[in-house]
Design a protein around this nucleic acid. Structure first.
Length: 239
DNA sequence: TCATTAAACGCGT
DNA sequence: ACGCGTTTAATGA
């Protein structure tokens, strides 16, 4: 609990099944894949483990094989501001990897998460040589831009129901997080940490979203029925 | 007054 | 043991 995971400790080689959960591998040529697969390391992060911390020199480009991370920064006051979650199939840190700058966020596991890492030098090799990899990165940056614009919108609304809806939609983004599937495994407590609300309020919001038939609440997870509505609509007020 | 929250409860998985 | 749904009491706009 609350240990720093650098992928130097507790790291191992990925299994074939875990490799299948790495989306950009499929975009490489057979030769590129052959070179890169041995470079990939994975590590098991427990809930609360820090994957990378603000100010550290970038060592890996990171991805989530299975699990849930949150990206946040600490404010001047003691509290922390969560930017976004990273769910299965999501990769991040290309900004710092590209510029060779220190990490600008803290990334922490909200639950047990299998984290994958590609060493920075391998990342640059792919960037210099692989068309397929560049296509993935471009797609990723473009989609992330859209997500941050949406996040600004979310912050301006103070309606908690809408905030929960939009945050769920972001976690279900099939381009950024192709491994999520139709059922996102996330507890209401984890969602509360991510959105910045209490668990009770998240529970109320989820029930309203379920009543609107946009989602289906399950034990330890949420199934999305209407991603479009979550992304753009507002719940009708009820009294 | 009204919405939200921490804390705590019982219940189901 | 964990997650869910709910209640209660406290807090603040």
């Amino acid at each position: 609990m609350n240990q720093e995971l650098t992928l130097h400790q507790r790291r191992r080689a990925p299994t074939a099944q875990e490799l299948a959960g790495i989306p950009w591998l499929h975009l490489l040529t057979a030769q590129e894949r052959e070179v890169m697969v041995p470079k990939i390391v994975v590590g098991d992060a427990l809930a609360g483990d820090v994957v990378c911390r603000v100010g550290r020199a970038p060592t890996y480009w990171f991805g989530v094989v299975e699990g849930l991370l949150k990206m946040s920064i600490d404010t001047d006051r003691g509290d922390s501001l969560t930017f976004t979650g990273v769910s299965s199939g999501g990769w991040f840190g290309e900004g710092t990897a590209l510029k060779q700058e220190p990490y600008r966020y803290n990334v922490q596991a909200l639950r047990a998460t299998l984290v994958a890492g590609l060493p920075i030098d391998s990342f640059h090799v792919l960037l210099a040589q692989s068309i397929g990899f560049n296509r993935f990165i471009m797609n990723q940056l473009n989609e992330r831009l859209g997500q941050f614009i949406a996040a600004r919108e979310i912050d301006r609304m103070n309606n908690p129901d809408v905030r929960v809806a939009r945050s769920l939609a972001a976690l279900f983004n099939p381009i950024l997080f192709p491994g999520v599937g139709e059922v996102l495994q996330i507890t209401q407590q984890e969602l509360a940490y991510l959105v910045g609300l209490s668990r009770q309020r998240v529970n109320v919001a989820l029930q309203r979203l379920e009543a609107a038939a946009w989602i289906q609440v399950a034990y330890g997870g949420v199934k999305v029925l209407n991603l479009d509505a979550l992304r753009s609509h507002t719940l009708a007020s009820h009294d």
